[in-house]
């Protein structure tokens, strides 16, 4: 906590003439206000690495979504189904979140974890995603926790070597199988998608017969049925935006 406050104070240069106690209190209030505001605007106070922490190339945000059983898709579905868990800027901050979240294999029901670069929503119509696509790997039950961890560690550690192309990763827990996917910006960039595929094979240590499927987000929308469980995620995410009841 102290680390975070110290870092935040560096950004708030206007507060430096105040004494320590008032300044801290004011920062706390301001942060609360910003957090309240973030519920609607999606904007957050800058997250920075604490002193002596290992910075990441990008900040990332954890999201969680869950389909409410038996509830029809409504205009509130987007807000109800996807929640921001938090944003981190350093390796240590990542572990603070990750160590206090259940692993995907222990999630119940129809749930997803999303880990996206800060500022990119885990939705196909985000500017960063709208021309993009994703590699999809279907996993038999029991593998999701391990594969998800390997996937996100590779992403955070910049193992994919595709410049700015990576947008985020998703793990989807379903009844018969689990699905992990990694999203990139430019679906038409075959050199990038091939490199992502090869890196996935390396870091996930997948069995040779594992099927990897690349899907553009526009195809996911046009042919939602072929996507199986993921279709529900997309419906939940984009229907409210289109005001479909």
């Amino acid at each position: 906590m102290n680390n975070k406050f110290d870092a935040l104070k560096d950004d708030d240069s206007g507060d430096h003439d105040q004494n320590e106690e008032n300044s801290t209190q004011k920062d706390g209030e301001k942060e609360k206000t910003e957090r309240d505001k973030s519920q609607s605007s999606g904007k957050r106070k800058a997250v920075v690495p604490g002193p002596a922490e290992h910075p990441l190339q990008y900040n990332y945000t954890f999201w969680y979504s869950r389909r409410t059983p038996g509830r029809p898709t409504s205009s509130q579905s987007y807000e109800q189904n996807i929640k921001q868990i938090g944003t981190f800027a350093s390796v240590e901050q990542f572990w603070r979140f990750y160590s206090h979240m259940v692993r995907p294999g222990d999630l119940t029901g129809h749930s997803d974890f999303h880990l996206f670069k800060e500022g990119i929503k885990p939705m196909w119509e985000d500017d960063a995603n709208k021309n993009g696509g994703k590699w999809i790997i279907r996993l038999r039950k029991g593998l999701a926790s391990r594969c998800w961890e390997n996937l996100i560690l590779a992403m955070l550690g910049e193992q994919f070597m595709v410049g700015e192309e990576i947008c985020g990763a998703v793990v989807s827990v379903r009844f018969q199988e689990d699905i992990i996917s990694i999203w990139n910006k430019t679906a038409s960039d075959q050199a990038t998608t091939a490199r992502i595929r090869d890196t996935l094979r390396r870091v996930l240590n997948l069995p040779p017969n594992t099927i990897m499927e690349y899907k553009t987000h526009t195809d996911s929308i046009k042919m939602p049925g072929r996507l199986g469980p993921q279709r529900l995620l997309f419906q939940n995410l984009w229907k409210p935006r289109l005001n479909v009841p």
Binding site: I85, G86, V91, W95, S99, L156
Partner: peptide, 27 residues
């Protein structure tokens, strides 16, 4: 900024990771 898996796993043992983030939502 590139980190390999082994290094990232070692950082997991850092003392700061033992406490949850202050604004971690309760789900």
């Amino acid at each position: 900024i590139i980190y390999d898996r082994k290094f990232l796993m070692e950082c997991r043992n850092s003392p700061v990771t033992k406490t949850p983030p202050r604004d971690l939502p309760t789900i």
